[in-house]
Design a protein around this nucleic acid. Sequence first.
RNA 1: GGCGCUAUCGUCUAAGGGUUAGGACGGAGCCCUCUCAAGGCUCAAAUACGGGUUCGAAUCCCGUUAGCGCUACCA
Length: 478
Amino acid sequence: MVRVRFAPSPTGYLHIGSARTFIFNWLFARRQQGTMILRIDDTDVERNTQASLDSIFDGLNWLGLGWDEFYRQSDRFDLYRQAAWQVFEKGRAYRDFTPMNAAPEKEAGEGGWLSNPGMRELSREESDRRAAAGEPFVLRFRVPRDPVRAVTFTDLVYGEQSKSTADIEDFALLRSNGAPTYHHASCVDDAGLRISHIVRGQDHLSNTFKHVLLFEALGAGVPRFAHLPLLIAPDGAKLSKRKHGPVVSVMTYRDAGFLPHAYVNFLCLLGWSPKDDREKMSRQELIDAFSFEGVNRSNAVVNFSEEDPIDPKALWLNSQHLYALSHDELATLLLPVFEKADFHPDPVKVRQVTPLIQERIKTLNDAPAVADFFFVGHLAPYDPAELIPQKGDAALALKVLRHARQVLAAAEFTHAGLEAALRAAAAELGVKAGQMFQPIRVAVCGRKNAPPLFETLEVVGRDACLNRIDSAVELLDK
RNA sequence: GGCGCUAUCGUCUAAGGGUUAGGACGGAGCCCUCUCAAGGCUCAAAUACGGGUUCGAAUCCCGUUAGCGCUACCA
């Protein structure tokens, strides 16, 4: 039975790298019909905040993938302490009374630290006596070095891994305040929750040797491991909010008008490939295609810059998913966006506008800027020169608009009716269709670039069209 | 410093002994066209470096360089 977990610590918003780790866990769980567990790794009481926990939930909820079981490490401290003392009783851990901040630090820059001399070999009697006297200590794991041996495991992504116990430090299990460390709590839970596969960032690859040792000391089976390459910034540094700003938070993409699934799709393609050139994939396609074979070993750059804070590929993928939506689905998503833009939109109007702008937006947030003229009572001021068509002058624009007004006053306001009427009008005037349409477009839309003319006029409606053309004529006449 | 991991177009990636090194984003151009999009087509763009092994290396091995990670009573 496959059981995987995503274990964020609530020390900030949901990072996009964490989001991807969550997604890969989720995909693997669904693919294997296993269980997805969300576990909050909040062992560092000092650094955890409720705000951060809330924002992690916000991010996860937006992604919309869900989980099957939920745990919180701060509820389980007794479990960790109990487990730690069992390890101690087995002789696999010892008390280290070295005062905090007084570690035997490398003065001469030689580096490397394995254990606190003396403490590891302290007799049980001496250790018990000092503890009873109230001297603070940290409980440290005793890495087996009597004969040095290799710790090995097979990573589903990185392959065979091996490290000598001569290169593994005696890491802490319990702090002097009795709280468990990340390594300890994590392993106790992974064992206790019967996690079958630990899928996490590659930054934990070298920690895994410690964890393997701990699982053994705990008397637990060792889970399978799959480490994921990291997401990094264009400068090669790891993504940090301080240095790279909001691009590292998933909420940024929600707020930018991304479709959650499009963003999931984008994240999946960072460090993983279906190996068949597919890019836009549905949730089910991702589930069906996912495997650790397809995961890369090198870190992936999220491509953004100051001017362009969103990866262009993410934007493209979002547009592809946007274009695939039905008009009704998209209209439903667009309604709140227009509301937020203060357009006081009528749902019927939004539904009419939707097909006209669908292929002109890359994010939901692009819609108000593209569709403003469908909703406003009065057009924002524009440069009258825009009304003048290619190879024409103000006189031509005026002639076209006056004639158009007449024609539109009588025309049947449907795509076919408008097309027939306006093409005929152009022929009558002896101007090219483009020269006819451009002044009308600018008069009605307030700009040169807009959706195709006939359907646009149809949705804007006869009254508004005539009024706007009157205004344009007035503008040119001055 | 020690230990571990990694290295294909600008970016995401495919090819895992034999390919003109493929696709996508982005860029340039053309087509379509009432503008803008969308769509179609074309072009530019890569195997970090040096040694091996082999008839043959992007691919396997060694070294170098570079980047990243771990080396906390953070996670």
